[in-house]
């Protein structure tokens, strides 16, 4: 740790910035080269003019938000109680949340199609809304490792026991405790998990394409099949828009914390 402290933070930051921005810069340079000899925005124009671009982007955006909400609702109470009173469940939970990292999404979606087919008890696959629900479930599953890890980190850094006791003394019931005491304190961690989830959903395409959902990831794959410059433009666009959306989420959280 000591040697790190010797260098100016800005040097370290600069090196990191070069490593991360260079590949993006190269992709951007390529996307601008669609016209021979000059730089132009033609590739971006052709992407914007495609109605499927906006439609698929907003669809994935909505799925991402719903996934974040659903994921947070099921993970926060579980992580809280496991940390507080059910430590023996911890190994089980850890293995469960790591499972999505080694299970290929195609196995998940084939499983869903078998479990929720038209001839089953819960024929979610039969309707468009049902298929979207399956997509949300699939995306939640894929985001679980990140959501749990960040929320657990957050719970670890606050003294959950003291906070709970204090809330109990003040007469709060368990649900209110979670909602009004624990949750605001781990909000930065929840936001971190939300960021990671957002990125997962925006890039997901295997589950979406096998459920015939018009997602952004599928759209990007389709464009890449026979075009060279437009996919690069799409990459830059989706990176920039996602970054902007997350930055806004960040700002809004800061704002509400200050106001609240």
């Amino acid at each position: 740790m000591k040697f790190v402290l010797r260098y100016s933070p800005w040097t370290i930051f600069a090196i990191a910035a070069v490593f991360f921005l260079m590949p993006l810069f190269s992709t951007a340079e390529f996307s601008l080269s669609i016209r021979r000899g000059v730089y132009s925005l033609d590739a971006y124009e052709s992407v914007f003019l495609d109605p499927e671009f906006a439609a698929s982007f907003f669809y994935s955006l909505i799925i991402a938000v719903l996934t974040i909400i659903f994921g947070t609702i099921i993970v926060v109470p579980m992580a809280y109680y496991v940390r507080l009173r059910l430590q023996w469940l911890r190994p089980v939970v850890e293995i469960f949340v790591m499972l999505p990292m080694v299970v290929p999404p195609i196995v998940l979606v084939f499983g869903y199609l078998r479990l929720f087919s038209s001839s089953s008890v819960l024929p979610l696959a039969d309707s468009s809304a049902g298929a979207s629900i399956l997509l949300i479930c699939g995306c939640t599953t894929l985001s679980l490792p990140y959501l749990y890890r960040t929320i657990d980190t957050g719970l670890q850094t606050i003294d959950v026991q003291t906070l709970t006791d204090a809330a109990g003394i003040l007469g709060a019931r368990p649900f209110a405790t979670i909602r009004l005491v624990i949750f605001p304190n781990i909000l930065p961690s929840v936001m971190a998990g939300a960021f990671l989830t957002f990125a997962v959903v925006m890039g997901e395409f295997v589950i979406a394409s096998l459920l015939t959902r018009p997602a952004f990831g599928t759209y990007i794959q389709k464009i890449g099949m026979s075009k060279a410059y437009e996919p690069a433009a799409l990459t830059i666009l989706s990176f920039a828009i996602t970054w902007g959306a997350l930055a806004m989420m960040n700002v809004m959280t800061r704002f509400s914390r200050r106001a609240g």
């Binding site: 590949p23 810069f25 190269s26 990140y146 990671l196 925006m202 990007i220 996919p231 960040n250």
Partner: peptide
């Protein structure tokens, strides 16, 4: 923070191409 949120799932073909382009 927000950059890392996006970059954390920048993978597959777009990432490979970005490095090929670099």
């Amino acid at each position: 923070m927000s950059f890392c949120g996006v970059a954390s799932h920048f993978s597959g073909i777009p990432l490979a191409f970005a490095f090929i382009a670099t």
